[in-house]
Design a protein around this nucleic acid. Structure first.
Length: 927
RNA sequence: GGGCGCUUAGCUCAGCGGUUAGAGCGCUCCCCUCACACGGGAGAGGUCGUAGGUUCAAAUCCUACAGCGCCCACCA
């Protein structure tokens, strides 16, 4: 049934010494795609786990932020898929209107080409060219990362089907009266030549100046001084405003001022918007170039004088200052004011400047004709969906941020004066000025035919209509993504099966841009009875922000991106994935460091070599034994008992394995990738490799067939294979390679990616095995400790003695004498009942036993100092515990188990303390 | 102006009410022991930003302060 990989090494005993990701990872990446492992199977009955990718912008290639996002999504996808969910990770890309247009414009600029020279059609053709290139790069990167997407369902926001969804959404909202067109003040980017939404304006604190300018009264009876940060806009002033209750200026209200430089007469008006505390308490009013002044102008019916063109250069209204850049105009205006003695003073002033989110040009508020989407009616259900828990937001404090924003939402400017995007499907009549709406989109097979573009006005019938030149904000199409990609507006099987999607994963930076709007549009457009079935996703998980070494945010426009392919090639995909996962603690940022990647690479290598150790020994077994021991049936039987009972090491290992399994499952449930990774790292390296493999080496090294050899092999292979499964969601390549090599034969799945994810069995938790193993480890460590402190050559075997007054402890040591001898590198081990005497050696003592190494030339002084220190520490600790236990309130109020634990500890410390005192005594006596 | 977050070992960060506070890297000492020097073994290193408070008990909860960062916002 399954098809064994031809490329995987098949001969045991031939593994390279080090893990070579470059030779292994690309092979599996290709094979997973070729075999379509990530296309959800057809059976409809299974539980669904679906996610629509946050479509990367086709502005270039993927950066580390994407890699973090994709690593987390992929880990969850693989985990759920292995758990038997019918998973769909739907991939795709975003046309990213303004961002992509900017990239192509910059590219053309390098060739000295302006987009206006080549025209709209040719420009769009060039952008499509670029899109093909960028989209291809992105897909390759994702495949290389191992992203388990269903590539048969790949989407792009500007492809015909999604174009159609956008047009459908627009037309419906328009017909419902939720989309309107009007002349309002909007944020305008003079470089991009387009309107922006409020969200696309980035505020940045900057040092600026506050100019105090005199406006003379027309009757020559005096002057008013105003303060402004933008003196050049006085060219468009149509009033000066003061607060109605401001005594200082009461006499001025209603009088006429002469506008400096231009001499135009303007009134002094009273408006409560003015803050008497700021500046001089008098404000120049420029209704065409400031949002507040715009509102004042509306209230007072002031004329709006526009002094700038689309590129924020002064126009004819600026009189002698016409045809200047806005900053040049400022210089000239200030210089002339100074010359005329109208500039009182300049103060340094720090304030926020609005910048274009994409190109960082200072935004110019501008009155223009734009399209808007009414938000309040859409926001109400979106608030309810989160308040009532239909959508869970993780980490949950993001829900508060979301709700706060939603409750204060403003209408959304959705039109952009760009060429790259979905054209607004509205035709304007040259004669009557009315609008004609039509469902026009690119025709394609499988789609209903679009409306023909209107040729006559639907109102007056005159054949002089032209399509609105604007395109839609790129986030308009993004807002439809979770359902447009599944076939909406048609009621497709995919939409019925996978919507609402189970999960959305993205960064905080697009919570408002995207998540909020998906929720609003999903709730609005899905033709389903219950609102909880209309939501676009059931859980929204907000991931960390990846920063560079200087803790700067990584972003395409900032240009400080680390190419994921570069580090992937250097350290291996799995190592980078593990690094990202292990640093993914919720609510924190990730300052990516190469140190961590190196350590993750070492981890991969460690696992590789654990496999190699098994492989080398396994290779010596007869082939029939190998087939039998590695067979799925053998692993299913593990842990395999020997002579009716498991060895301590196996009880311990499987106890730990099941606990780690529980930890990993729980951590992934809660998006705690760092906990899952830590558990796996610690288990694999420090428990499985450092202790377990060392412990059992002699057993599985046996050549001769025996029940003990078989038991050892079955157990170690089963544990190792389970651990590979556990690690697969985070390190898919390494685990797949190792699994295919040893375990795939006889399995009915083609890949580890389709194998079953382990489930913890609490019956395997074995406290006594863990306690006993801890005692043995403590004994071995204690002897190694003496060796290291006494500078005993690591190659030299020595004698040692262990003594304990407790029979069970001695029994344990006796039963594992061989392991202690081997792991502490001894030539001989004596076991004695009771405490050990110093007897001319070095004696170390812990609560339940003593260890002694006979030595003639020990450094007694150093040993004495060490003991002194230990004694002091114990005294301090005992004093603390004594006070604690002497506190009646503590005994009365603390839970019984806490009191008992402290009493136990006190008893242990006491024993220890007495032994240390005695030891110190004998050391000093023999001095 | 609001809102949110951070301050724990030299560095980067976990832990967020109950044993002697952890990890990775770095550092010190020993070892190329037949899986791995991307390794093994053993260590050193922290009064958990400051000051109060709550509690039997506080890195962990509360308050204030200091420093750092982010988001939102129409005071020119």
């Amino acid at each position: 049934m399954r098809e064994r990989s031809k490329s995987a090494p098949t001969t045991p005993g031939e593994m390279p010494k080090a893990y070579e990701p470059g030779a292994i990872e690309p092979r599996w990446a290709q094979e997973w795609v070729a075999k379509r492992l990530s296309t959800p199977p057809a059976e409809p009955a299974q539980p669904i786990f679906s996610l629509a990718i946050p479509p990367p912008n086709v502005t270039g290639s993927l950066h580390m932020g994407h890699m973090l996002e994709h690593t987390q999504i992929d880990a969850l996808m693989r985990w759920r898929r292995m758990q038997g969910f019918r998973t769909l990770w739907l991939p795709g890309t975003d046309h990213a209107g303004i961002a992509t247009q900017l990239v192509v414009e910059r590219m053309l600029a390098e060739q000295g080409i302006d987009r206006k020279q080549i025209g709209r059609e040719e420009f769009e053709r060039r952008v499509w060219e670029w899109k093909a290139h960028s989209g291809d790069t992105i897909k390759k990167q994702m495949i290389r990362l191992g992203a388990s997407c269903d590539w048969t369902r790949e989407r792009f926001t500007l492809e015909p089907a999604l174009y159609r969804a956008v047009i459908e959404a627009f037309v419906r909202l328009y017909q419902e009266g939720l989309i309107y067109r009007g002349r309002y003040m909007v944020n305008w980017c003079p470089r991009c030549g387009t309107a922006l939404s409020d969200l696309e304006v980035e505020h940045q604190e900057r040092d600026a100046r506050l100019y105090f300018i005199r406006y003379l009264l027309a009757d020559g009876s005096g002057h008013l001084t105003i303060a402004t940060t933008r003196p050049e806009t006085l060219l468009g002033d149509t009033a000066v405003a003061v607060h109605p209750a401001d005594e200082r200026y009461r006499q001025f209200v209603g009088k006429t001022l002469r506008l400096p430089l231009l001499g135009r007469e303007i009134p002094v008006i009273a408006d409560a918007y003015v803050d008497p505390e700021f500046g001089t308490g008098a404000v120049k009013v420029t209704p065409a170039h400031d949002p507040n002044d715009f509102a004042v102008g509306e209230r007072h019916h002031l004329p709006k004088i526009n002094i700038f063109d689309e590129a924020a250069r002064t126009n004819a209204n600026a009189g002698p200052y016409a045809d200047l850049d806005r900053f040049e105009a400022r210089k000239r205006v200030v210089a002339d004011l100074e010359k005329q003695g109208l500039l009182e003073r300049i103060e340094p002033y720090r304030h926020a400047v609005g910048l274009c989110h994409r190109c960082k040009t200072p935004v110019e508020p501008r009155v223009s004709l734009q399209w808007f989407c009414k938000m309040q009616p859409l926001a109400e259900p979106a608030i309810e969906a989160v308040e009532r828990g239909w959508i869970r937001i993780v980490p949950e404090n993001n829900a508060r941020i979301y709700l706060h924003w939603m409750r204060n939402i403003h209408d959304w400017c959705i039109s952009r004066q760009l060429w790259w995007g979905h054209r607004i499907p509205v035709w304007h009549c040259a004669l009557c000025g009315e609008m004609t709406v039509a469902r026009v989109y690119p025709a394609a097979p499988g789609l209903p035919p679009p409306d023909p573009p209107p040729t006559t006005c639907s109102h007056c019938g005159v054949p002089r209509v032209a399509q609105d030149p604007d395109v839609l904000d790129t986030w308009f199409s993004s807002a439809l993504w979770p359902f447009s990609t599944l076939g909406w507006p048609d009621d497709t099987p995919d939409l019925r099966t996978f919507y609402p999607t189970t999960l959305m994963v993205n960064g905080f930076d697009i919570l408002f841009f995207w998540d909020a709007r998906m929720i609003m549009f999903g709730l609005h457009f899905l033709p389903r009875e219950k609102p909880e079935e209309r939501i676009p996703f059931r859980t929204l998980y907000i991931h960390q922000i990846v920063r560079d070494a200087e803790r700067q945010k990584m972003s395409k426009t900032r240009g400080n991106v680390i190419d994921p392919l570069e580090v992937t090639e250097k350290y291996g995909t799995d190592a980078v994935r593990f690094t990202l996962a292990v640093m993914s603690a919720p609510g924190t940022d990730i300052a990516l460091s190469e140190d961590r990647m190196r350590s993750a690479r070492a981890f991969a290598n460690k696992i590789w070599n654990a496999a190699r150790l098994l492989d080398l020994n396994f290779a010596r077994l007869p082939e029939a034994d190998r087939a039998r021991l590695a067979a799925p049936a053998s692993r299913a039987a593990a842990p395999y008992p020997l002579n009716g009972g498991l060895t301590l090491a196996d009880r311990w290992l499987f106890s730990r394995l099941h606990r780690v399994t529980a930890e990993v499952n729980l951590a992934l449930e809660e998006f705690r990738f760092h906990e899952a990774s830590h558990s796996l790292y610690h288990f694999f390296w420090h428990e499985f490799c450092d202790w377990y493999l060392e412990w059992i080496k002699p057993a599985f090294g046996e050549d001769k067939a025996s029940p003990s050899r078989d038991a050892a092999w079955m157990n170690v292979l089963a544990a190792f294979e389970t651990a590979l499964r556990l690690l697969h969601p985070i390190m898919p390549f390494l685990t797949e390679e190792l699994w295919q090599r040893t375990f795939a034969a006889g399995e009915n799945v083609a890949s580890l990616a389709l194998a079953k994810f382990p489930q913890a069995n609490p019956a395997r938790f074995d406290d006594s095995a863990e306690r006993e193993m801890a005692l043995l480890q403590e004994a071995i460590t204690l002897i190694r400790n003496i060796r290291a402190d006494m500078k005993i050559d690591a190659r030299h075997r020595i004698e040692a003695a262990l003594g304990s007054p407790e029979q069970p402890v001695l029994e344990l040591f006796r039963a594992h004498r061989e392991e202690i001898i081997r792991l502490a590198h001894l030539s001989r081990l004596d076991l004695q009942e009771g405490h050990l005497a110093l007897a001319g050696g070095v004696l170390r003592t812990v609560a339940r036993f003593d260890a002694r190494v006979p030595l003639s030339d020990t450094d007694r002084e150093a040993e004495r100092l060490r003991l002194r220190k230990e004694k002091e520490k114990l005294e301090a600790e005992l004093a603390r515990l004594h006070t604690r236990l002497g506190d009646a309130e503590f005994r009365a109020k603390a839970p019984a188990h806490v009191v008992r634990a402290i009493e136990r500890r006190q008893a242990e410390y006491n024993t220890q303390y007495q032994k240390v005192v005695a030891l110190l005594g004998s050391l000093e006596a023999s001095r």
